Amino acid sequence: MKTAHDLVMAAKARTQEVSLDDADEAIRDADVLIDVREADEFAAGHLPGAVHIARGLLEFKLSGDPDLSARDLKLVVYCKTGGRAALAACTLHDMGYLHVKSIAGGFDGWASAGKPVAKPSLPSFD
Rank of each mutant, 00 (worst) to 15 (best):
V77G: 04
R37W: 00
A86I: 09
A54L: 03
A26W: 04
T3M: 10
H46C: 02
L92I: 08
S63C: 03
L57W: 09
V100T: 02
F125E: 11
V18Q: 09
A10L: 14
I27K: 02
T3R: 04
V32P: 00
G83A: 08
F125K: 12
A39W: 14
V18M: 07
L58T: 00
K2N: 14
I34A: 04
C90H: 02
A11Q: 05
G105M: 11
A13Q: 10
D35N: 08
A70P: 03
G109H: 03
A39G: 10
A23C: 08
D22E: 15
T3E: 11
M9Q: 15
G109F: 05
A54K: 06
M9N: 13
L7T: 03
D94S: 08
D6N: 13
H93Y: 13
H52M: 14
D72E: 12
I34P: 00
L47V: 07
S112G: 12
V36L: 11
I103D: 02
V32R: 01
D22S: 13
L92H: 03
K80T: 10
D126A: 10
L7E: 13
D6P: 00
A30S: 15
A111T: 10
H52G: 01
V77E: 03
R28F: 08
H99T: 14
F107I: 01
K119M: 09
D67H: 13
D24G: 07
A89H: 05
K119Y: 05
A10E: 15
A54G: 11
L47K: 04
A26V: 12
A89F: 04
S124W: 10
A104V: 03
G49W: 09
L57Q: 15
T81M: 08
Y78P: 01
L47T: 00
A30N: 08
G106Y: 01
G106F: 02
L62W: 00
A4K: 09
A86D: 03
D108V: 15
K119L: 06
A85T: 04
L75Y: 02
V76P: 01
M9E: 09
A43K: 15
